[in-house]
Write a protein that binds this DNA or RNA. Structure first.
Length: 290
DNA sequence: CGAATGACCTGTGAGC
DNA sequence: TGCTCACAGGTCATTC
């Protein structure tokens, strides 16, 4: 599911039910996610207050009042769903439904948190590429999971100068370079395809061979497509849902992704092609991306 | 060293 | 109806 806009959308929907609240009950229902839970996961989370909920790259991070940070990655198919206790309830700008019978006991419901919002938060991930971990908050950025991660694309640190330096001399195609989390944090297959289309750059172009004049439009396109996607609640192809259960809407704004064989949305009269690059589908218009 | 490949896991939709 | 195949938002270990 989730690239930066989807994770950011989930974060925004979780915050009213988690931030500032206490985890009154924690249950792990299945331990074999991508990284198995620590044995004492419940002991280290239950009873703790969440002081801050934020995002780094495609990770959701919840600082606990114990000095540890709960790290959550949604993998390809992970969801975090919030259900209100007792009645449908508005918290912040979100309205949360009551839990249907059996919420949190499904086949792929791996973790259930109760908070004193009061709400039940269910982590569901049928492919189990996701993970939860606990790391020391003070040394989070040095942790194995984070120490090699590149800049946040929506920060001021991500600019033409940074990208020029990051791509300099790289002989890998630009598509692969942008997917590499060490270059930029949070881009995935959809938004790389969309950003390259929007800046007229072929995904096959070698990263180090992109002209200086094309870097500024690429940086701008990345920021714009991510912001627009966040505003739309992310893209729902199959699995992505917001914390309220609602789908995202940005899939209706794709210009190339998942449009194989359809006409290019520009006036070039080209046709969108799909091919496999580094094991992933790439969508592009050969006529107006070079 | 950097870059390419396949493995991890389940579900779904297309085609026969 | 039911089979088989291709494919899906990500990362990581292994190989060249």
């Amino acid at each position: 599911m989730p690239e930066l806009p989807e994770v950011e959308t989930v974060r925004a929907g979780l915050a009213p039910a988690m931030e500032g609240y206490r985890l009154t009950h924690v249950e792990t229902r299945r331990g074999d996610l991508r990284i198995p839970f620590p044995q004492d996961f419940v002991a280290r989370t239950q009873g703790r207050k969440i002081t801050r909920l934020y995002r780094r790259a495609k990770y959701l991070l919840a600082d606990l009042d114990s000095g540890e940070t709960l790290v959550i990655h949604l993998g390809m198919s992970g969801r975090m769903s919030v259900y209100s206790h007792g009645k449908r309830r508005k918290l912040g700008n979100y309205v949360y439904d009551m839990a249907p019978d059996g919420a949190g006991t499904g086949k792929h419901d791996h973790v259930v948190f109760e908070t004193d919002a009061p709400a039940r938060i269910v982590f569901n991930d049928h492919r189990r590429f996701g993970l939860m971990a606990l790391v020391d908050t003070k040394t989070l950025e040095q942790d194995k999971l984070f120490r090699a991660i590149g800049v946040e694309p929506l920060s001021e640190d991500f600019n033409t100068a940074y990208l020029a330096r990051a791509l300099d001399g790289k002989k890998t195609p630009i598509k692969s370079a942008l997917l590499d989390q060490r270059t930029i944090a949070g881009l995935g297959n959809i938004y790389v395809c969309e950003a390259l289309f929007r800046s007229h750059i072929s995904p096959k172009k070698l990263a180090g061979a992109i002209s200086r004049e094309k870097l500024a439009p690429l940086v701008a396109a990345i920021k714009k497509v991510l912001k627009d996607a966040i505003a739309a609640g992310g893209s729902t192809l199959r699995d992505h849902a917001q914390a309220t259960g609602d789908p995202g809407n940005f899939q209706h704004h794709f210009l190339v992704y998942d449009r194989e064989g359809l006409p290019c949305k520009r006036t070039c009269k080209g046709t969108v092609k799909r091919f496999v690059q580094a094991g992933r589908s790439t969508f592009y218009c050969p006529k107006c991306q070079s």
